[in-house]
Design a protein around this nucleic acid. Structure first.
Lengths: 190, 190
DNA sequence: TCCTTTAATTAACCAGTGTTCAATTGTAGT
DNA sequence: ACTACAATTGAACACTGGTTAATTAAAGGA
């Protein structure tokens, strides 16, 4: 009975992911439904299943992208022009900014409890942390133990996870973030 | 058609709250249903509505209790016998222990995004933090700014929120928690 | 004893979920 | 023009959820 959309704009994985990304800006994994995504795209919910096996696979595709983004952001900062201390500060702020700019994805990347989703990610969070830790180790004035760096990471995560949901953009807490970053810098300076 | 339970053990608000508490040890607000609570109690789901107006009210009653517990724990530590530094360490560890011992409640107390629940809590989290901050201010060697204390709190929250869901008991990460607490003590020592 | 109050059950309603699948369509290749 | 195929639809399935309301049963007082 049903008509097909003009083929000029066939539904693609990208389009679906974009729509899902948008909905994620407001709600979390459980609250975003396949039907909502389809509605946003003006397609039927069944169509999504032609491009993605199921909900979990769709969201895994998103998460993978975001881990890539975060890793790139870290490298971008480290490869830039600045003193080591300045780079460290940027690293800390960059992490917070990323978390608060992609709040619902940060949640999936580092906070989700749902096993269905977590199984898909496996080692991505750990790899990102290891990358982060290696850079902190290189940039800090004094020799840092693994545990010390872990405390830094935990503290950054604390900042993001606290403001997550209570605040809409990074700029809302930029000054607080800068202060927190400075506090963490005390641990790496001789 | 239906029978009533023997009146020796009438259903009470306490019983319902206990059952809900238990289910919370495994799942979060959205995943715990009124029907599950009722099943656990061997009562029908309708019975709960005789004692609580709705789901949100039931969980608010739980949350209120837990804010009380946390505040008591803080006072307990501060009023105890120990050096100021030792009390601070205990304060930090106590906070983490509380968070990881009552994981799903911690989530509701400090991490929930759901407006339905958040409206019920209003200022409880802030009052708890203010209490915490006052004590840290008293116990630290040097004069601490509001922002510095806030960083400590954020960092503690980070520890809890990271391990939340990845770990079952406080003991699983006791040593890591102790290390983290020591890191935070560096900020308060002269 | 009857009557009222209280407490519990159950069915029902409504709204939503992820997923599957037969049916249908548009389009490109022959 | 015909066909093969990829893409899309929408109904249907099998759930789960919170909440309400009519109904029933027990307990206690008059």
């Amino acid at each position: 009975m049903a008509a097909r959309k003009a083929v000029e704009k066939e539904l693609t994985r990208e389009m679906i992911m974009d729509a899902a990304r948008d909905l994620f800006a407001e709600k979390d994994y459980q609250q975003v439904s396949m039907r909502q995504i389809a509605t946003k795209l003006n397609y039927s919910h069944g169509a999504i299943y032609y491009h993605f096996k199921n909900k979990a696979e769709l969201f895994y595709a998103l998460v993978k992208d975001h881990f890539l983004m975060l890793n790139q952001r870290i490298e971008e900062i480290v490869d830039g022009e600045a003193s080591n201390e300045e780079k460290l500060r940027k690293l800390y702020l960059g992490y917070i900014e990323f978390g608060l700019t992609h709040q619902n994805h940060y949640e999936i990347m580092f906070m989700i409890k749902n096993d269905e989703v977590r199984n898909f990610m496996s080692e991505s969070p750990m790899l990102t942390y290891q990358n982060f830790a290696r850079q902190v180790s290189k940039l800090s004035e004094k020799e840092m133990s693994i545990q010390e760096i872990w405390s830094i990471f935990i503290s950054l995560h604390g900042f993001v996870s606290h403001y997550l949901g209570h605040v809409t953009t990074f700029d809302d807490v930029k000054r607080a973030a800068e202060f927190h970053a400075n506090m963490l810098l005390r641990w790496t300076s001789a």
